[in-house]
């Protein structure tokens, strides 16, 4: 039963990771920017939600506030950090360091504002019930899985069916096509940042009500996003989502044989295995340098 319990826990974590990693992959796919400040979007969304709950506002307001903050941060990074850098140089290194710097800034601001400790938003949804002998599930599990499924369906439809969605995919595959479509790459890159950052919100809110937030969460989310991008195949949205799920499950299952402190290390063992044996990831093309 422990195994089943851990599997379900893993799926819940994995759903959160999958959404977040998909946002990262969407941004990378469309703009070729390695948006390591993605974790900062996540943290900001989570703390925005926390503030609203502490102020006694109803949860939908909190979610909207989280959404607004995350999207604003993503768009701001695109407009005020990445674009000026790409205007003069735009090497991987420069973009990476700038985004990394912003992650540190956000993390320390949160630390100044909220302290270093964990902060949890209490919720009735997290009350676990015994659904089978030895298997405890809270309603939040179904919320997490449901939200992930619905959002992936929506994002999938958006990318397949709408003009802007097709434009986003074209941007990653063949920028030349864009001109034929009459879409501006600048607007599309803003769209990618908006949408990608919005995808951190469910994960952030769910984390706030379950395991809790702490300032260092931005670095953890950044790691998960990076690892999922690599494991899934760089630039592949489907791959990143699947890899996020995989990492979440592995982190939890490992607890059945090792102590809990090894759980996040296990995720990175998966990462190394992929780098060693399948660097193209689950869905990527050959990328040997």
């Amino acid at each position: 039963m422990l195994f089943l319990q851990l599997l379900f826990n893993g799926i819940q974590t994995g759903a959160i990771y999958a959404l977040t990693a998909a946002g990262f992959a969407l941004i990378f796919g469309a703009t070729r920017i390695f948006h390591v400040a993605h974790g900062a979007s996540f943290a900001l969304a989570g703390y925005a939600f926390l503030m609203c709950s502490q102020a006694g506002l109803p949860w939908p307001v909190g979610c909207l506030a989280a959404l607004a903050v995350a999207v604003a941060f993503g768009l701001g990074m695109d407009a005020f950090i990445y674009r000026p850098i790409q205007r003069h140089e735009g090497s991987f290194f420069t973009v990476f360091v700038a985004a990394f710097g912003m992650t540190i800034v956000v993390q320390s601001l949160i630390e100044i504002g909220f302290g270093r400790g964990f902060a949890v938003v209490p919720s009735a949804l997290t009350m676990a019930k015994e659904v089978m002998p030895g298997l405890y599930l809270a309603n939040i599990f179904w919320v997490a899985v449901g939200v992930a499924v619905v959002l992936f369906a929506i994002v999938g439809l958006f990318l397949e069916r709408t003009r802007a969605g097709i434009g986003l995919r074209a941007l990653s595959e063949n920028p030349e096509l864009l001109r034929a479509y009459g879409l501006s790459s600048r607007k599309l890159s803003a769209l990618a940042f908006g949408l990608g950052s919005a995808l951190t919100v469910p994960g952030a809110v769910l984390t706030a009500v379950t395991s809790g937030l702490q300032p260092a969460i931005s670095a953890q989310v950044m790691l998960i996003s990076l690892a999922s991008a690599v494991v899934g195949g760089i630039g592949s949205l489907r791959g990143a989502a699947l890899a996020g799920l995989l990492l979440g499950v592995v982190e939890n299952l490992v607890i059945s044989v090792l102590d809990t402190q090894w759980s996040s290390a296990a995720g990175f063992v998966v990462l190394f295995i992929f780098i060693l044996f399948k660097p193209s990831g689950l869905f990527g093309q050959a990328v040997t340098r």
Partner: peptide, 17 residues
């Protein structure tokens, strides 16, 4: 053996482990 992005990811992973 792989692209620069991988090294960043791998080194971050190593740091955590």
């Amino acid at each position: 053996r792989v692209r620069g992005e991988y090294f960043v990811a791998a080194s971050l992973g190593l740091q955590m482990m």
